[in-house]
Write a protein that binds this DNA or RNA. Structure first.
Length: 878
RNA sequence: GCCCCAGUAGCCCAAUGGCAGAGGCAAGCGACUUAAAAUCGCUACAGUGCGAGUUCGAAUCUCGCCCGGGGCACCA
């Protein structure tokens, strides 16, 4: 009976037992220890949604956990914290939906997350748990707002903002995706409102150059570079005819000034009203009105025909004094450059289209051939050709020419070289309740005054009603007890700022708070931050490529400049996990649903496919279901939870499968079949290991060494596996690391079968003991519950997390002989076994001596022999 | 339209210039079993999306296409 029990892999009991012991021993709690090297592994700051985590979340939490456990076994002092991005719209919207207060809901949801993360064996130091909506956290978010303000990096401006009518709040540029709100997909409008901004544009250059110093996926770096969008060019002044005004334009092609035949201003340009003539007033007014009404989606549609209106005014081209008409058109954006352009239809496609439509002259600056004329042009010529007019006639169409022209313009004082960025300042104001109040006070006498640091936090009032107002005003504006205060400077009655900060403020510094989460004197102790930071390994989804990662880098640079931290990049190494898709039943969108945009649920992609809700499944015949692979998410109703997998197959199986299913960064299609295989493997390990365990001797290191071929081979495989598993985890190649473990168990199985019921020899006992112990430890980062159970079964104390990860023995891992392939003209002819390190000349000699090669040499002449030591010999004959 | 990433066996994936196959799923066969499951063992299956090129040698490098995924999109 007892024999039976030992061989029964009861993962439910084992996993619960070790999770309890880890907790009792406070195993993952870490302390500052400058005598030890540190390792900081961090997950993207999650919002704890009511749905809890799905197996999709395991795609990032498990690999980082494995990497951190390995680092711990390698002797690093590992910081692995977790906290909740609890402020912001996801939490608020969910609370509204459930008619609850987010203040009560967040801790509940966080508790569920915590429970689930423990269930899959995560090695978090829970003593460092933080909640960004707690006053002792947002107090410091507000403190950082004031820091930015003091540095001149926070300002209030009344410019038209991106307004999401559904979220009822302003959006930063980064939060507008294709003219739609990133969160809900509604069409974004423009609204004038006074708003707080962070001057991230002041750091544009450093946000680009810093990318060269960090180990991030190239794709993410490219996205950030393109988002910041640095472009070199010049600003040039055009005198407006018969007005005391100059129109300044930005151009990357000042070399084409000679071909500028008209100007275009954005409809919002402040000069428009001043220079528009009486005759044109009506049509210009109409155009401006129309531009205002159209949504960002409409304005951003690139395939749309160019439209515009003549202002009646003219400007003087500074290079040839020609008067050229000034138009307004919505393809020119007020937010980029100067909001006005010089149009060179011959060399810019957009200007070309506009010129053809409104019959404006086209003048060629560059020509690739004499036959080419402005009349014959079918499209603009952005590149190539030689300059044919002006002072620089004869110059090629090149960067060098652009540079020369800029110098010339500067000398003539009509313009200057300028670097422009696509990046705009970061809109931080939200007109919502659930966020950190912006710590500013509006005083009638003193103006805008910061809240003194010692009065922080400005507490978010606890209220019953917090729904967004929709008027563009924060719900806080309706709470007199909050709004009315006194001016910190003159003590006169004053009003508080009622906007709150967007959630990205909280996540721009949380990684620092983990270094010192309970500090009530400052956001963090510099000594602790210097020890733990920067984050060594940061893991999360690629969807934050621009927003969060850009903002966090910006805040870190600001802190660096304020002398708070010595580094200026927060995340040394970044990895993005792939998405997890589930096969999901859906149906076609019916005509009436597609018809009106108002009623369509904007959380779902606006396509012709809609997920079948559970209640709809009965109504729609099964042969009309359309199956699709879509992201696993609560709104799709296709979630598989770690709870059900842990219950059915165990956490270690789930961990192993999360790693094995595909390369880390690849998209995964969730199929239940695959995980059965992972479970089979874990069972197989259990069975083999427990069967061999009776042969274990603790002092195997003093035992006799193995000599038989088969045993030496198995030991070689063991040491190769140590090397492979450790290396693959470091390189984030978890799938091949797990495969290596499977390979080893396959060989171990053959050994066990060969052993049968015979008692093992002394040598075999030594080998088996080494295997039992080593296998336990190399499994430990991946299947920690199983490993700790094994460790105990070996009669050891404590936890594998505290045991050094095995070192591989290079001698034991070395191959005894190497296979050399012999090819003739690239085709396989023979194989040779040679000792490692055999020189090229020697294997060449052996290859030429091969029978099959000799046979071919009878009829052909050897032209060349390529001999690659350790690989092959290729004999070229003809 | 532009920029990334991928395309290898029925499926998920290894191999990053050197014998196309490590691992898993599914399939087939055998052993064990009264039988089945589980387990153990064995087996078959592709010439690497298409077309050129470089090379002694290409899944791997280069160029041009096709297909899928992701990102950006009037930025002057």
């Amino acid at each position: 009976m007892s024999e039976e029990n030992v061989n029964q892999y009861d993962f439910r009991v084992i996993e619960a037992k070790w999770q309890k012991r880890w907790e009792e021993a406070d195993l993952f709690r870490v302390e500052y220890d400058p005598t030890r090297p540190k390792f900081y592994g961090l997950d993207f700051f999650p919002y704890p949604s009511g749905a809890g985590i799905s197996v999709g979340h395991c795609r990032n939490y498990v690999p980082l956990d494995v990497a951190c456990r390995l680092k711990g076994m390698q002797g690093y002092n590992v910081l692995r914290p977790m906290g909740w991005d609890a402020f912001g719209q996801p939490a608020e919207n969910e609370a509204i939906k459930r008619g609850r207060n987010p203040r009560e809901m967040v801790p509940e949801y966080a508790a569920n997350y915590r429970r689930q993360l423990k269930l899959v064996g995560m090695s978090y130091d829970w003593s460092r748990e933080i909640n960004s909506s707690a006053p002792d956290y947002y107090r410091w978010t507000q403190w950082f707002f004031l820091l930015l303000y003091k540095q001149g990096l926070a300002y209030r401006a009344n410019t038209p903002i991106n307004w999401c009518p559904s979220c009822k709040t302003g959006l930063a540029n980064e939060e507008v995706v294709g003219g739609k709100c990133w969160r809900c997909g509604s069409a974004v409008e423009k609204r004038p409102l006074p708003q707080w901004y962070f001057k991230i544009t002041a750091y544009a250059d450093r946000l680009i150059s810093g990318l060269d110093t960090i180990n991030w996926p190239e794709g993410i770096k490219t996205q950030q570079r393109e988002w910041i969008g640095r472009s070199e060019g010049a600003e040039v002044d055009f005198q407006v005819v018969e007005h005391d005004a100059t129109l300044r334009v930005f151009t990357t092609r000042p070399d084409t000034l000679w071909g500028a035949t008209f100007m275009v201003m954005a409809p919002e340009h402040p000069l428009v009203s001043q220079i528009t003539t009486a005759e044109q007033k009506t049509s210009v007014q109409e155009y401006i009105e129309r531009a205002k009404r159209s949504t960002e989606i409409e304005r951003q549609a690139t395939d749309r025909a160019k439209t515009g209106v003549f202002t009646g005014a003219y400007a003087t081209n500074p290079v040839n004094d020609a008067p050229i008409p000034i138009y307004i058109a919505d393809y020119v954006l007020m937010g980029y450059g100067t909001g006005a352009i010089m149009a060179v239809p011959a060399h810019d496609q957009r200007d070309f289209e506009f010129a053809r439509k409104y019959d404006l002259p086209i003048v060629m600056v560059y020509q690739s051939s004499p036959e080419q004329t402005s009349e014959s042009l079918m499209e603009a010529l952005p590149a190539g050709g030689v300059m044919v007019i002006g002072e620089f006639a004869g110059e090629p169409n090149s960067k060098e020419t652009v540079r020369k022209v800029i110098e010339w313009i500067e000398a003539r004082k009509t313009g200057e070289g300028v670097i422009n960025f696509r990046l705009r300042d970061w809109l931080i104001s939200r007109q919502r309740y659930w966020g950190a109040p912006i710590p500013m006070i509006h005083c009638p006498a003193c103006g805008t005054v910061p809240v003194p640091e010692d009065q922080l936090p400005v507490p978010l009032p606890d209220v019953e009603k917090y729904q967004p107002t929709g008027t563009g005003e924060s719900p806080l504006a309706g709470i007199p007890e909050f709004v009315n205060t006194t001016c910190p400077q003159c003590n006169a009655p004053a009003k508080r700022e009622t906007d709150t900060m967007g959630g990205f403020a909280c996540s721009s510094w949380y990684f620092l708070r983990f270094a010192d989460p309970n500090n009530s004197e400052r956001p963090f102790d510099p000594e602790l931050a210097n020890y733990w930071l920067p984050v060594d390994l940061y893991v999360g989804g690629a969807e934050h490529a621009v927003m969060h990662l850009l903002y966090a880098r910006f805040w870190t640079k600001v802190m660096h400049d304020a002398g708070l931290v010595p580094f200026d990049e927060p995340f040394q190494r970044l990895r993005n996990q792939g998405m997890l898709l589930a096969y999901t039943a859906g149906r076609r969108v019916t005509k009436d649903e597609a018809g009106d945009g108002e009623e369509v649920d904007t959380n779902e992609p606006l396509e012709d496919w809609k997920v079948l809700k559970p209640e709809e499944k009965a109504a729609v015949p099964e042969d009309q279901w359309i199956w699709k692979w879509v992201k696993m998410s609560k709104s799709m109703g296709n979630v598989v939870t770690p709870d059900e997998i842990a219950e059915r197959l165990g956490a270690d199986t789930l961990r192993l499968y999360s790693l094995f299913v595909a390369p880390f960064e690849e998209t995964v299609l969730w199929a239940d079949k695959g995980i059965e295989g992972a479970h089979r493997f874990v069972n197989r390990v259990w069975r083999m290991w427990t069967e061999l365990r009776p042969h274990y001797v603790a002092d195997w290191r003093n035992g006799s060494t193995t000599t038989s071929d088969a045993e030496r081979k198995l030991r070689r495989k063991l040491h190769q596996t140590i090397r492979k598993v450790g290396g693959d985890i470091e390189e984030f190649k978890f799938n091949t690391g797990v495969a290596a473990l499977m390979e080893f168990t396959n060989e171990l199985s053959a050994f066990r079968n060969a052993l049968g019921n015979q008692p093992p020899t002394l040598e075999q006992t030594t080998l088996v003991s080494e295997i039992l112990e080593t296998l336990t430890l190399i499994l430990a980062p991946i299947a920690p519950h199983l490993a700790d159970e094994f460790w105990e079964l070996l009669g050891k104390e404590g936890f594998t997390f505290r045991v050094p990860f095995p070192q591989f023995d290079p001698e034991a891992a070395a191959e005894e002989s190497i296979l050399i392939v012999v090819q003739v003209n690239g085709k396989l002819r023979d194989r040779l076994q040679v000792a490692p390190g055999t020189e090229a000349a020697e294997i060449e000699r052996l290859a030429l001596a091969c029978e099959k090669v000799q046979a071919e040499m009878q009829t052909k002449q050897v032209r060349k022999v390529i001999s690659v030591p350790g690989k092959l010999v290729n004999i070229v004959m003809g």
